[in-house]
Nucleic acid binder design. Structure first.
Lengths: 204, 204
DNA sequence: CAAGATATGGACCGTGGGTCCGTTTTGCAA
DNA sequence: TTGCAAAACGGACCCACGGTCCATATCTTG
């Protein structure tokens, strides 16, 4: 419940300061969990109480940051031009959506990582930002004729862009951005391709 | 480094006791993180020091449990009969492997969950049990002609069986076991199907 | 400008992983 | 058996971190 916006200007100023400080920290540091709430508060020149009043808890802060950074993409999806916007052939749109998710995680690795393992009950699948991606993706998948199990497929495709996987491939393994985009695109293509009947075993 | 086996019988007895107690706890409780190390120690009738001496840290304990439970499957894979064992046509073996992973996580939800988000550096991808699965899967994928990017594909397929996803689908969403196995099988089939790329579609 | 409402910040708390070290157990050898 | 060093025990203790509390400072409004 402590998410209500305030109208007092000091509150607003502090909220901004915290957001900015957190943003900066998450861009520079190496691992999400060595950014503590106290760090953020200090960097923002604010007391811990203020921070928690403004965002409720760690997850709340992360969520706020995430929403802010996601805004442009969200707009592009809801009302932008193809291939992200509506009015794109479903197959292309699925590809574009997953590519967008991938790029987002490549650009915001730390934050996405932090968000994924600090979900409400420690399950990323309860967070409603995940719900949203999943719902959207499923809806688009459903428009592809001959594709069954779009609910599961949506989950499975999103799983291929999990923040920790992306981070691992990009960081530890040093796979370059474009290469990864290609690989994901290839994978998505395979899944969407009108193949042999799903469920059946390819015999011979 | 504190993983060296001891030969003293009290040490061995206690190790067993801890393993048994932890196993029991992980089977009964609802969420991995409300099983504390102190809980395990108490349940085993042992001091915390003993527990940490024997397993190093939380991850170590989890790993030990995991290995123990995984043993049968591992054997089946290394030297068992088809479809898990070697000597199976690659496509079938991939399907069987992923099905085995899925079943394992369905049967050991809590433990797998705990293991995944308590990986060494909080990334499950550094844990060597993941490495092993990935290496094996990739090797099998590489035997499938016409399939490229087997490294990435292996990651992506494994991602579809992530413990938290499985747990979410089975728990929250109530999807029955057999249904999930079918869906995963269908997904895998699509990925493995000879795609529309060079070679054309095999139309029977 | 007074006064009620709201925000502030840092001391404080609970929890849980992990360590320390005085005590106990074990295995070996005389 | 008994002596004794090496190894294990266990629980008190430590510390980091998320989160709370509340006396005080700052706004806003009439």
């Amino acid at each position: 419940m402590p998410e209500r916006q305030s109208s007092r200007k000091d509150a607003i100023r502090n909220r901004e300061a915290v957001l900015a400080a957190a943003d900066a920290l998450f861009r520079r540091r190496a691992s999400p969990e060595d950014i503590t709430m106290a760090d953020v508060a200090a960097a923002a020149g604010v007391g811990k109480g203020t921070l928690f009043r403004a965002f409720g808890d760690r997850a709340g802060l992360l969520r706020a940051l995430y929403e802010a950074r996601l805004e442009p993409i969200r707009e592009a999806i809801e009302a932008g031009p193809p291939p992200l916007g509506p009015g794109t052939p479903p197959q292309d749109r699925v590809r574009a959506l997953l590519d967008a998710v991938l790029c987002f995680k490549l650009d915001n690795g730390l934050l996405a990582l932090a968000l994924e393992d600090s979900g409400s009950d420690s399950s990323p699948y309860r967070a409603d930002h995940y719900e949203r991606w999943h719902r959207l993706l499923r809806a688009v998948l459903e428009q592809i004729p001959g594709l069954t199990d779009s609910d599961f497929t949506a989950h499975a495709l999103l799983a291929a862009t999990r923040a920790d996987l992306v981070e691992h491939l990009a960081g530890e393994r040093g796979i370059p951005r474009e290469r990864m985009r290609e690989q994901l695109a290839g994978f998505v293509a395979k899944v969407l391709a009108p193949g042999p009947r799903p469920g059946g075993i390819v015999e011979e």
